[in-house]
Design a protein around this nucleic acid. Structure first.
Lengths: 207, 207
DNA sequence: CACAATTATGAGCAATTATTCAGTTCGCGC
DNA sequence: GCGCGAACTGAATAATTGCTCATAATTGTG
């Protein structure tokens, strides 16, 4: 139950394709099980069962339950970074509103995959030292990136770009998550518009 | 582990002062234990120990662990409603910004008590049917109230007041919670200013 | 004081869970 | 097709947890 497990690295370096495959099966199964039952009720035996491997095999690849979720989170964060980078390949739009929209839309798409799993990740983060560090570092980078962007862009008028960046990053992350994970379906495009409008007006208004 | 326990009501109607006292001890202890260990690791035995009563007594007042958290949530929601009502006793301010500030500040104060406990409440809500219903009803009321307020106020210019109300309620709740529960201390007044600015500009800008 | 109702006790049960390990099977180079 | 390490197996273990119940203590009442 403690968070500071010593070894979160895989126990075994895979040498055969078989091993790599098993590792992937575990992750996929874990994603399903955690999403459906939550972290506490998502038992390692259930994960192994769903992956159709023995519980012993699971513990050859992950030293404990926490490590599995940590890897899932790491992969999710990486996917998010990659998605944003891909969208920026052709350069950012000029207008602030379009930049904000790009950012918001990427966030939405990233959350649309599996909102339930994401909920588990977010919920469990504060109880896992490994996750806490990983997520904190990620958010810091995000804020720094946003801040730089705000500093450069001529439409942006805010007193303190650091505070503004934090507020924007938090708001997008939280609101998007809540909306996509909400039990009752929601008109996504409309909320995207409103969220973009709110952020754009905030950033571009005179201080 | 299932959420739909049949009886969430206290098992016993207290007839002596002693009983009422014990009940309060349990709640106070539970608040501390849940805040410190989270829901899963916040065991009923630990709660009883902290309340300095026997585990048997605990189960005379609450049929199961879930019921304890449900009552804590109910009390928190009631306190929130009461706090807002108290602030509105002398009438609302005229300017939109001041109304928004009043709302944001009340939310902050409500979260400042015990952010960790609040985190547990929020996290566990989706796994408990009783909590889910309670919180959903509360949020609906909040949204309806906000919407009506927006419809009346001359400074508010939004296309769809329902969507705007939802966005505002969600944003305040989520951002305030994240900020107050954040591990590193944060400049609360500054964030209050920025959040108020963001919401006000959003609501008052021309659609 | 006596008696009944209310409240408190806590050892222990049943169920669940993460994790281990002794043994088996598989795959690949020779 | 042989041998050896890599990969897999799953029954067993130790620990934990929510909760019960038979019993005891306390309180109010006539």
């Amino acid at each position: 139950m403690t968070s500071d497990k010593r070894r979160l690295q895989p126990r075994k370096q895979p040498r055969q394709v078989r091993a790599e495959l098993t590792r992937q099966r575990i992750l996929t199964a874990a994603a399903h099980v955690f999403a459906e039952h939550g972290y506490a009720a998502g038992t390692t035996n259930r994960i192994a069962e769903r992956a159709r491997i023995s519980i012993g095999s699971l513990y050859q690849y992950y030293p404990n339950k926490d490590a599995i979720l940590v890897e899932l989170v790491a992969r999710h964060l990486d996917a998010g970074v990659a998605a944003l980078a891909r969208r920026e390949e052709n350069g950012l739009p000029d207008s602030l509103e379009e930049i904000v929209r790009l950012y918001v839309r990427t966030a939405i798409e990233n959350h649309l995959d599996d909102p339930q799993l994401l909920r588990v990740m977010i919920e469990h983060a504060p109880r896992s030292l490994a996750l806490l560090e990983k997520v904190a570092r990620f958010e810091q980078e995000r804020v720094a990136y946003m801040r730089e962007l705000f500093d450069r862009h001529p439409e942006v008028r805010v007193g303190d770009s650091e505070t503004a960046a934090r507020l924007v990053v938090s708001t997008v992350e939280l609101v998007v998550h809540q909306l996509t994970a909400a039990p009752d379906p929601i008109d996504i495009p409309r909320f995207e518009n409103e969220l973009v409008a709110m952020l754009t007006r905030y950033l571009s208004a005179a201080g």
